[in-house]
């Protein structure tokens, strides 16, 4: 759905995006993560056709974003980090305005507003002025405006910031619903625990570059961390563990090791037997599923 080729974006003296190549498949929810200043917002606004890169190309659903930005705008929804709303309009007027600016057919306007408002749970706020709504409700109105024309691609920059936990959970459910309807979502966020609820893929940016990561979240979830604690110090253990084919990485901790391997009960059982049969004084063997946070920290720190 989205193809980014050799994208370079510079601010004077700073390379915000350095030869970035990305492909996002149709119907995925891709988490775009990275520290502040990594280039996430720049990448999103380039994909949205709001900024012109120094070089490279971006294609969205086969359309060249740099050559035909308006065609792309009709197909996508983009919610910026610092979004604004027309505070003196009612929620209904805001949604009607969004319908009309996105060319929703006049005959479908009322039904579209009704279903979108229901999706965002703002049906009871349609007559209220947007300026009088709480931060969380305004966020929902903004998202409703962004998705009202049922875009093929939805780009969201920190969509959950400022929301309470319940609203965040509702937002996660909404993203999954939108994905199920066939929408492709790219979500930039710092809240990794929430991304885990809905994202299918992950891209990690650091200093304008895509750094080495496993992009497919399903793959991430198939990896586990096994914490092995030994009752006595055995320096030969590390060499032994590192040479076991099932183990991807070995990290030393106080009193033992953390082993990264594929989540497979039989394999884990075999591993435990191997450790004991090799004379290691194992007194604790605990398995933890890897989280996005682990992958992110491992790549960033």
């Amino acid at each position: 759905m989205i193809t980014v080729n050799n994208l370079v974006f510079e601010y004077p003296g700073v390379c915000a995006l350095d030869n970035v190549n990305v492909q996002v498949k149709t119907g995925s929810i891709t988490a775009l993560v990275g520290p502040n200043g990594a280039g996430k917002t720049t990448l999103l606004s380039c994909i949205a056709g709001l900024q012109t890169p120094l070089s490279g190309s971006i294609f969205l659903d086969g359309i060249d974003v740099l050559e035909q930005p308006r065609k792309v705008h009709a197909k996508i929804g983009y919610l910026a980090d610092f979004f604004g709303l027309y505070k003196k309009l009612t929620t209904y007027q805001s949604l009607l305005f969004a319908c009309r600016t996105h060319g929703v057919a006049a005959s479908e306007e009322a039904a579209t507003i009704k279903s979108t408002a229901a999706d965002l749970q703002i049906s009871d706020r349609l007559d209220q002025l947007v300026g009088s709504l709480s931060r969380g409700l305004r966020q929902r109105v903004a998202i409703a405006q962004t998705i009202i024309h049922k875009p093929k691609v939805l780009l969201l920059d920190e969509p959950a910031s400022g929301l309470d936990p319940e609203s965040r959970h509702e937002l996660s459910k909404l993203f999954i619903r939108l994905q199920q309807q066939g929408m492709t979502l790219v979500v930039s966020s710092h809240i990794l625990s929430e991304l885990e609820e809905y994202c299918t893929d992950m891209l990690i940016l650091r200093q304008g570059r895509l750094i080495n990561t496993t992009a497919n979240v399903e793959t991430i979830e198939k990896l586990v961390n096994i914490k092995v604690l030994l009752s006595k110090e055995q320096p030969e253990a590390q060499h032994l563990l590192a040479n076991l084919p099932a183990i991807k990485t070995v990290t030393c901790i106080e009193g033992g090791y953390i082993l990264e391997c594929v989540s497979n009960p039989e394999l884990q059982s075999e591993l435990l037997q191997t450790l004991i049969s090799n004379g290691l004084a194992v007194y604790s063997f605990s398995v933890e599923r890897q989280k996005l946070q682990d992958i992110y920290i491992k790549n960033i720190v």
Partner: peptide, 12 residues
């Protein structure tokens, strides 16, 4: 510029 290695990620 960053000294990070740059990779192509196919999110699929």
């Amino acid at each position: 510029k960053s000294t990070e290695p740059n990779i192509q990620v196919t999110a699929s």
